[in-house]
Design a protein around this nucleic acid. Structure first.
Lengths: 137, 137
DNA sequence: AAGTTAGTGCAACATTGTTGCAAAGTTTAA
DNA sequence: TTAAACTTTGCAACAATGTTGCACTAACTT
């Protein structure tokens, strides 16, 4: 993804595309994976944790990335699809490989619809499947 | 739940029922909720965090309690059902109330079956729904 | 009763996520 | 074009969480 495309993307979501933000987004998008804050820190040794953290937060707040809580102890981030609004219908299953620790967006597997008992509202969900990925098997 | 019942329960799962473990189990069972390590610490001000932690770990390893990763930042624990072996078929949805921070086991809602792409194995899963509970609505 | 094993408390620690503040950079508007 | 206003970044610090090593104590074994 070119810097230009990234800048447009960020602008379209009302996030000012600063140099740092563009770099962080690029790293995440190019990785094609979910990355934790620590993962990203390693890719930019010179950049402050808090800067990356705040970039990710602004992305998250503006539906540019979504987070996954895979139980590994650190939150992971992944770029959203083009038209994602991070609402229930855009959510997909994530797969956490207990062997390599990698977490993958299963975009082809939407989170199934659940009928909650009366009185509960449904805003959001996380569905993480643990197992072993083809790579590790 | 009486101490006697708890001791039997723990023994049946091959965990020696020490005084501390019995207390921790009782607190968790009696609460009828999911509790974090910090929650339990508060209930036993005199007891070491690590002791409670290790009690919970031994419970978890022996399928006496299960953990929930509700995204709140701390893992929560809940007692398993009588016959639970914590395998896929015993898993249920958890509900995290974004208002009060409480997490509830929805035992009546089993985790739906998902057909993963070839090459992936399915050991375990976490399905947490975020919303507002009747109490907070 | 002595020896072995298991459990507990204490202290310390790494990691994660987060914030306040000041410096640097960017935008606005005179 | 320069000053003022605002935003972003880096630094430092911090709390919370989860976790471990070690020594002491309790419990079990023979």
């Amino acid at each position: 993804m070119t810097n230009n495309e990234i800048e447009k993307k960020l602008e379209s979501k009302k996030v000012k595309p600063t140099a740092m933000r563009t770099l962080v987004y690029k790293a995440l998008a190019d990785s094609g994976k979910t990355l934790s804050l620590a993962d990203l820190e390693q890719r930019f040794e010179k950049v402050e944790r808090s800067t990356i953290f705040r970039a990710l937060k602004s992305f998250e707040d503006n539906f540019i990335v979504h987070t996954v809580n895979d139980g590994s102890g650190s939150v992971k981030y992944a770029v959203c699809d083009e038209d994602c609004t991070c609402n229930i219908h855009d959510l997909h299953v994530h797969f956490y490989c207990t062997r390599c620790g990698r977490t993958r967006c299963m975009k082809e597997l939407p989170i199934p619809n659940i009928k909650l008992p009366d009185g509960y509202t449904y805003d959001n969900a996380q569905f993480v499947i643990n197992g072993v990925c083809p790579r590790c098997d």
